[in-house]
């Protein structure tokens, strides 16, 4: 940043959650003064990378830096989001930026959380097409434009974890409540005209916890960086379950 004239930079107060499991210290917030170009609206990830240049020991995940790989789910000034597509103009309040790991999951180091619980729940919903339609490698299973449109808003999930880790029901029962991400995925296959395992899928979701711990708080909807609506998908599953029980 030395080459930029003083008038063109501003200093941002950034506070980053630090935790090293091998050290005796408790987690703490470390403050950085980060110089950023005034005329450019950087993303939170850019700021994290600048901080890492000052202190290379900060641990966080990143890959695509364009909001499609789902690596950098973070808690940014109190709200879950992706670092790479959250502009400072949206995130920074009173020239302050606090970056913490996604809440509710065990922290491995600093901003890196253990996603195992999240992925386990995803795997439970059998997130793959099950079909008894005649499948051969000579043609596609037919699907109309209207049938395919039912998957819009469902298949785009990037598994960043922002939704499930913003959900109080998931915080309380991360092993029994599947969480919004896994349920969105469950409904993605229920809604797929090519999938013929709807009954089997619903049966698996029928207990008191898997789906019904969702109380429609809608934190998932407000944080989803892809603009998806897991609460709506969960509502559809609930309707089908109720109908099935009658």
């Amino acid at each position: 940043m030395n080459s930029i004239a003083a008038s063109e930079i501003k200093t941002l107060k950034v506070s980053i959650y630090r935790y090293d499991p091998l050290k005796k210290e408790k987690p703490y917030m470390q403050d950085f003064d980060i110089d950023i170009p005034a005329e450019k609206d950087l993303m939170v990830l850019d700021v994290l990378m600048l901080a890492k240049e000052e202190d290379p020991s900060i641990s966080f995940r990143r890959s695509c830096r364009e909001g499609v790989c789902g690596s950098d789910g973070l808690n940014i000034n109190g709200k879950n989001g992706l670092g790479c597509i959250t502009p400072l103009s949206d995130a920074v309040k009173s020239n302050k930026l606090a970056i913490r790991p996604l809440p509710g999951l065990p922290v491995i180091k600093d901003l890196t959380v253990d996603m195992k619980q999240f992925v386990d729940q995803y795997k439970k919903v059998k997130p793959y097409l099950i079909t008894d339609k005649k499948v051969d490698t000579k043609q596609a299973i037919p699907q109309t434009i209207q049938e395919r449109e039912k998957l819009d808003g469902l298949y785009e999930c990037i598994m960043c974890g922002c939704c499930s880790t913003a959900c109080p029901s998931f915080w309380w029962n991360p092993d029994k409540f599947l969480g919004p991400a896994a349920l969105l995925q469950a409904y993605r296959f229920i809604a797929d005209s090519r999938d013929t395992a709807t009954d089997e899928r619903l049966e698996q979701l029928e207990d008191a916890f898997s789906v019904f711990r969702c109380h429609g708080i809608m934190n998932c909807v407000s944080v989803c960086p892809k603009g998806l609506n897991p609460t709506k998908a969960i509502g559809e599953i609930k309707k089908m379950l109720v109908k099935r029980a009658l």
């Binding site: 097409l129 490698t137 596609a140 434009i145 049938e147 395919r148």
Partner: peptide
């Protein structure tokens, strides 16, 4: 083509034509 149909059969949500094809 065989590989494409294999992926479709696995569940890849291709966009569709009026005739229901990929």
């Amino acid at each position: 083509p065989e590989a494409i149909f294999e992926l479709e059969n696995m569940g890849l949500p291709f966009s569709r034509t009026e005739e229901g094809k990929i």
